[in-house]
């Protein structure tokens, strides 16, 4: 089983590095559970995150499902469920 949290954090960091505050990036880098809205990501950033996760894990995600995940922990759990169901 791949380290899903690592993959999700990496995808978020890649999309957020030029748009999010230092504090939000620090939270992300530390892997603590926090509100993803703090990253200030727009819909195109979310698409970038989805593409990264889909490619690394070879799964299919929908935008609305990903957008519904409010925290890092929720997103990791959601992606883990998707990997498990494949």
């Amino acid at each position: 089983m791949p380290n899903i949290k690592e993959i999700v954090v990496s995808a978020l960091l890649e999309a957020a590095e030029n748009v999010s505050t230092k504090e939000a990036l620090a939270n992300l880098g530390a892997g603590v559970d926090f509100d993803l809205a703090e990253l200030g990501l727009e819909s195109l950033h979310k698409m970038q995150i989805i593409m990264h996760i889909e490619e690394v894990l070879d799964i299919e995600l929908d935008i609305d499902d990903v957008s519904e995940q409010e925290t890092l922990g929720a997103l990791v759990d959601f992606v883990t469920g998707k990997v498990g169901s494949n």
Partner: peptide, 8 residues
């Protein structure tokens, strides 16, 4: 669809 991801 407005909500399908990239793979789809």
């Amino acid at each position: 669809s407005h909500t399908i991801g990239i793979s789809k």
